[in-house]
Design a protein around this nucleic acid. Sequence first.
DNA 1: CGCTTTCTTGATTATCATCAAGGGGCGTGG
DNA 2: CCACGCCCCTTGATGATAATCAAGAAAGCG
Lengths: 248, 248
Amino acid sequence: MLKEDHLSVTQDCNDCPIRHRAVCARCETDELERLEDIKYYRRFEAGQTVIWSGDRMDFVGSVVSGIATLTQTMEDGRTQMVGLLLPSDFVGRPGRSTAAYDVVATTDVVMCCFRKAPFEDLMERTPHIAQRLLQMTLDELDAAREWMLVLGRKTAREKIASLLSIIARRDATLNMGRLDGPVTFDLPLTREAMADYLGLTLETVSRQVSALKKDGIITLEGKRHVTVPDMTLLLEEAGDDTDGGMLV
Amino acid sequence: MLKEDHLSVTQDCNDCPIRHRAVCARCETDELERLEDIKYYRRFEAGQTVIWSGDRMDFVGSVVSGIATLTQTMEDGRTQMVGLLLPSDFVGRPGRSTAAYDVVATTDVVMCCFRKAPFEDLMERTPHIAQRLLQMTLDELDAAREWMLVLGRKTAREKIASLLSIIARRDATLNMGRLDGPVTFDLPLTREAMADYLGLTLETVSRQVSALKKDGIITLEGKRHVTVPDMTLLLEEAGDDTDGGMLV
DNA sequence: CGCTTTCTTGATTATCATCAAGGGGCGTGG
DNA sequence: CCACGCCCCTTGATGATAATCAAGAAAGCG
């Protein structure tokens, strides 16, 4: 009902909450204006599929608010999450016409979309866009490689601790929180989504979360609200280099 | 002894075997000339470490010949391969001063290196380089995501079959081979490297290779020379969508 | 308040890791 | 040319970790 109202809330790029972190971050005023010409907002409800793998993609875009996941599914139903899309993250690949992964909204999501063909044209003529996209893609590649170590070599307990650290760190940077005292955040994922992220079953996720709680590494209020009394302990459980630079 | 000779073999970009696939692929003649000014060749012997994680990196570059690996290692020694670098692949990250991963030469390797600072300058002024690097990085990200499915959700047997398919496909495209008859190739990796690639132990790799051999999916001459009588069967073992487009 | 979705916990099983021993190829040196 | 040693690989026995199967509790929602 109010949906259409929400759609029009964020029309002006200057008021955009992701203005300085998204693919448009480096654009000058005139470049932004050209992006405005081809942009439109779309809203997706929690649980809704944004794009099916294999579907034709005629837009690319940025997550403005909410959380979405990128997943791959095998024929027999086994699924692996391969990307977690947060506000300012980019969706879609210039130069490719069909989606390679399922994109699903985990919470309500607002996306700032660009029609693909005009966006590609603009990118050819606007180095600032391509430069920013390169930077973002390199960051994602680094994240993917970190993730590969988690998937390939860590134990279930370490996997859970790793995921919690990642979410805690992100929340801290987004909300200007600090990492040297107790850290508190909400899990944006169900146990099943956590399992798909980590290559585990949801039962194992549940058990390991309980174990970390029993050992005092974390405390829970309800199932989703997590407090980490001492980040150092959590990072040790994750098997990461002892706090190396992370708390700085 | 002949080493220094080899170093000077590939001095002219026009004769370069990776000219049309590396980061310089889109460059015009004048752009290439500016790259020539800042490039130099380096050779690494099999087993030699190209860069240690955490080390200062004052160059970036392309693999000209040979194979190198990107690996991460945990404090207790567990290691995960996160990249397999083949001829034309790019090493290093513009805008970052220290290496994030160990780079190790698996075979003898020749690299075409660019001093980092001049390369970054040149990239700012040469969209053709940034564009090509973006394309290559997006491809790597796709490969990493495919790899994540393998690490997170596939069984040991499927992992081995997946790796063999990847190598077979690559060999076919490099050597203009076909994938619709028997396919033959050499494994460029030891059992241990395969294990680090797949998140397994070398014993499990050995057992699963033997099992695929016993079941007639592959045949072996020696330990490294593999023949796949029927790619369709191997792809089925890998758990991939039944040959979908792969044989085209 | 009842229903569905999400989560927890227990019992059992399967898969892969670990520990252990030995085979085969290859280069080096006697 | 052969013997020795080293590296890489194979195979077997055993054990640990996480998956599977199953039941029920808690939380969210109409």
